[in-house]
Simulated scan of single mutants.
Amino acid sequence: MTKRVPPLSLFLMAASFGGATAVQAQMTGDDGEVVRQARPSQSVENVLREEHALFSDRLTIEPGINYSYSDRSQLALRGFLALDAIFLGNIDVDTVESHITTFDINTRYGLTDRLEVGLNLPFVYRSSTYQSIGADNDTEQNEETSVDESDVGDISLTFAYRMLPETETRPDLVWNFAVRAPTGTDPYGIATREAGDNLFVPTELPTGNGVWGVSTGISALKTLDPAIVFANLGFTYNFEESFDDISATDGDQPGDVKLGDSIRAGFGTAFALNERFSLSLSYAHEYIKKSETTTEEGGTREVIGSDANVGVMSLGGTYAMSDSTSLVTSLGVGLTDDASDVSLTFRMPFQM
């Protein structure tokens, strides 16, 4: 009696050194559905876990660390032109360098061969350096100060449900759903302080979004020997929340905040080079709509500059150190102005 194959079973041919053994380990049922008699290699399971869903009946505890860096520069001219050639006024060049390090533990468990649940617990450390050039009309005069913050981030609960298993003609389809709780420090009502003649910085940095959010989407994965291709499409909805203060100025200004919803899509490919090692290349893009604030005095207004296009190209690799422990790495490079310049991730999943 055969069992239904989890995604990537056909990839055993590429991940195994003995071709005859791989052929014996997989076959096709009467209904055209891929079936197997042996468990896929560890490198294949690593690709499943990181890019799709594993649906394993073993508990997976996955500690990880992610570091991202970005910098933004803005030129501000405050004055006027004399004789259409000479600028009279202040020239300010403001630069913000952001470092975000996130430590998290991601726990996953397959309740059945079609349903998987997960829980992500993050801890965030942020450090931002603010620089201003051009104070007092002097381009040689620089000002600089740093602000850092550490706290729990937003906790999320995830569900993955296999809608259709992979066959020779169709990909493996999984529906994903997630709930995000506002357990981190929210970014609203943070006061600013004067850090120099021409420099104002926030007194603290946020570690969360401050609002509840739900995400849903579809991911697909298909084995195309000797590679695997995957793609995903998703949507995130942020609930409107009320806060006692949403202004950075002195005094409380109560109001409602509706963070912009987002649409995301991604695709990529992976190769299991042998039983323990795999490589992947992927691209992810997310469009975030403008946020809105509502106050008694000003009504509802869009927050200018709050929309974003985030595009990231990622190169990843997994190495199975044992049958129950793996090392996962990923390097992401931002391709749009709103994305982080670079991000580096290390994860180490343990299967109990």
Rank of each mutant, 00 (worst) to 15 (best):
S278E: 14
S41G: 09
R78Y: 13
D225G: 01
T216R: 05
I190M: 08
I288P: 11
T158R: 10
A82L: 09
T325Q: 14
N274V: 02
D148F: 15
D307M: 07
G79S: 11
F55D: 00
A265E: 12
S343T: 00
G64L: 08
E97I: 13
N46P: 09
G153D: 08
A160Y: 11
S242I: 05
L273C: 09
N142Q: 11
E292Q: 02
E50H: 11
T112Q: 02
V117S: 14
P349F: 07
L81N: 13
S68L: 03
W212M: 07
V310H: 07
N309V: 13
P63D: 04
T318A: 05
S219P: 10
I246W: 11
S215V: 01
Y125I: 04
A76I: 14
G316A: 15
I155N: 09
A178Y: 11
G213H: 04
D151C: 02
A38D: 09
L157R: 04
F55Y: 03
Q74T: 15
E286T: 06
T183E: 06
Y161Q: 05
A308C: 08
V312L: 13
E50N: 07
F103E: 10
G32A: 00
N209I: 13
T295P: 02
Q253F: 08
E240G: 04
S43P: 01
T223I: 04
I133P: 01
E296V: 06
D57A: 00
G153S: 05
N309Y: 13
D261F: 07
Q253T: 02
R58N: 07
